[in-house]
């Protein structure tokens, strides 16, 4: 199986990352590489260590041992340099109150020393007409899309998305998927954590399955499925060509409801 990613120098190199909190070994020797233009999925149950791993890559947490490189820059040694070239969308989408979306984007631009055109960024995430709204007034899906716009102000080399479609209705989720595909099409490397296997299958070139602070599997979604089938696994449910979600979408349409 090919991943569809051009081989080249990896943009992210994680080598034997370890992080311990009190009596929990949150990250227990994680190593992987992510290539330019790839959408890389981090899957795993809650508490598996995905968020800690991502936070180490984002320069928001120091690993106990191990090394993380982004674009060849050592994250622990030069966190600020790394933060300049990455985009981060956090699970809790927190932005200042009482500023409009346009003002927030301009403010975030200055944090990176960049002049931004809020209109363009908002158009890109489908919020072109909401420039004068405040973040708190947005729907769940709009909030998630805005936080992606805010993460794009510095034209990041790597974009970290933390459960971007959690809590969204099927229409908004599909809209989010289109947005992420658009990022990939623009050549942005994406690291995506998610609980939705369907989302990972749809979007990710490769996925790492993390459990108890270790990577237990890393491959393309398709070959991971093939590997499972080779062990003689048989799905007990009859497979059909459509799911209940397909029914839902066909009956309610793909149009966004949160506008």
């Amino acid at each position: 199986m090919t991943s569809g990613v051009e081989p080249g120098n990896p943009v992210i190199v994680a080598t034997d990352l370890r992080k311990r909190y009190d009596d929990i070994q949150a990250v227990d020797g994680i190593s992987f590489e992510v290539y330019p233009g790839e959408v890389f999925g981090m899957l795993g149950p809650n508490g598996a260590g995905k968020t800690t791993t991502v936070e180490i890559l984002e320069g928001m947490r120091e690993p106990d041992t191990g090394q993380a490189l982004i674009n060849g820059i050592d994250v622990s040694k030069h966190p600020t340099e790394v933060k300049r070239i990455i985009g981060v969308q956090l699970q809790a989408n927190a932005f200042f109150d009482r500023l409009t979306l346009s003002e927030l984007l301009k403010l975030f631009g200055t944090l990176y020393g960049q002049k931004v055109s809020p209109g363009e960024l908002l158009d890109r995430v489908g919020l072109g007409d909401r420039g004068k709204s405040q973040f708190v007034k947005l729907s769940g899906g709009q909030k998630q899309r805005f936080s992606i716009a805010a993460a794009l102000v510095n034209k990041p080399v790597v974009m970290f998305l933390d459960e971007p479609s959690t809590g969204l209705d099927p229409q908004a989720r599909r809209n989010m998927w289109d947005l992420i595909k658009g990022l990939k099409a623009d050549g942005t490397t994406v690291v995506l954590t998610t609980h939705y296997m369907e989302e990972a299958e749809e979007l990710c070139d490769r996925v790492a399955i993390v459990d108890s602070g270790r990577i237990v599997a890393l491959d393309t979604p398709l070959s991971l499925v093939d590997q499972l089938l080779e062990t003689g696994f048989k799905n007990e449910r009859p497979t059909r060509d459509a799911t209940l979600e397909d029914v839902f979408i066909s009956m309610t349409g793909r149009a966004l409801r949160d506008e």
């Binding site: 600020t80 340099e81 956090l90 809790a92 927190a94 932005f95 200042f96 109150d97 944090l111």
Partner: peptide
């Protein structure tokens, strides 16, 4: 207190702001 509870401080930590 509000910034901390809303996670604004955390969001700012993800930017290069000092």
């Amino acid at each position: 207190l509000q910034f901390r509870q809303q996670g604004v401080l955390r969001r700012l930590r993800a930017t290069p702001v000092n």
